[in-house]
Design a protein around this nucleic acid. Structure first.
Lengths: 192, 192
DNA sequence: AAACAAAACTAACACTCGTTAGTTTAAAAA
DNA sequence: TTTTTAAACTAACGAGTGTTAGTTTTGTTT
């Protein structure tokens, strides 16, 4: 593997980490450079611009999340089981990409057009998948009859902070985390 | 009421709104000034500094949330009922201060010391109250036995996005919102 | 009408921002 | 060893940052 790729990855990793810790706007290229240990101008031998790094993070993560959809749809099971599996995979993506997930959740608004619109579209697609799942569950009488958008947002908000909680050597591993979340959430919306 | 207070409130309101919409770092004093319709320098006849506005928002909200604790403790009821009431009040604060809540949740990290530490302390106190409530519920066998911190964070994350969902003339009013959240959450963690 | 205070203004300071140009050093290929 | 390429450097640009100084306008109080 050429040195260039290593450096590039080092820069992107520093950017991920700083974007997460301080936010995109409060992170300067000089911050990134000094973290990596080179001069500011040298960054531009490896990356295109500050925003290109944000774009890369946001869209790479969006694709990772969207890739969950066909995997789950393919199961052809009941909404409850599909939701369980979706949550499991979602938690897996977050816990294995904590920095990127934090940036994905909080910093996308600093994207400029047309990337901002493209991002929102992808996110809407992803959220729509969960809304459909929840609506189908409600129609089958499995879930309580609550406005699906509301339930979907409760679900996402219950999941999307996990990048903050999860520590690779912490008490709970990703599988245990998604079991607990699934348990709380599905029992919470279950019709009985 | 003197004109000065009105202007001051106008400035703070614009700041709240822009801090929420674009984030603290991405909001310039010139943005605020042009929203209000005056020159940048004129802002300083009314406010001390950019950060002082952030401080005011964060600490005012922290106090509003902390004020919930004695109200709930005074009830002397079971953890379940206390939790219900706490959620009800918390939702009420959020829905009646949407902009400030968003800033409170996301922008506190841009506080400088010693305010940052003071803020974290207040937040820890508040979170500790909920953890205690949850632990007591677990000890009484009312709730599932899950690490309280985890449950507490699920609860907060389920609640703290509401500034985004709630619209004064939307489908659900604050009371309905807290009923649904309480229903989902308490059924989710209930031992049965 | 005169005096005072509040709040607006213009102008600027010292600094940071992302980024580019041009140059030198280090490494790889010939 | 020479040539080429990648990656570092120094220096700087133009724009934007929060904030202050000093001045003028506006509105209120005597």
């Amino acid at each position: 593997m050429p040195v260039k790729v290593k450096r590039k990855e080092h820069i992107n990793s520093a950017a991920r980490n700083l974007f997460r810790e301080r936010g995109y706007s409060a992170t300067s290229m000089r911050d990134i450079a000094s973290t990596v240990g080179i001069e500011v101008a040298s960054l531009y031998n490896h990356i295109d611009s500050k925003e290109s790094m944000l774009q890369q993070i946001c869209f790479t993560m969006a694709e990772k999340f969207l890739a969950i959809i066909p995997l789950v749809k393919h199961l052809q099971e009941r909404p409850e089981e599909q939701l369980k599996e979706a949550i499991r995979l979602h938690v897996l993506v977050i816990t294995s990409h904590a920095d990127e997930s934090a940036v994905f959740v909080h910093e996308w608004k600093h994207l400029s057009e047309p990337h901002l619109s493209a991002f929102k579209k992808m996110r809407n697609n992803y959220e729509g998948f969960y809304r459909d799942l929840i609506r189908r569950g409600e129609e089958l009488g499995l879930f309580k009859n609550i406005h699906e958008k509301f339930v979907m947002m409760v679900l996402f908000s219950s999941i999307n902070w996990l990048y903050d909680y999860y520590k690779p050597n912490g008490k709970l591993n990703p599988s245990q985390i998604s079991d607990i979340i699934t348990d709380i959430f599905l029992n919470g919306i279950k019709n009985n």
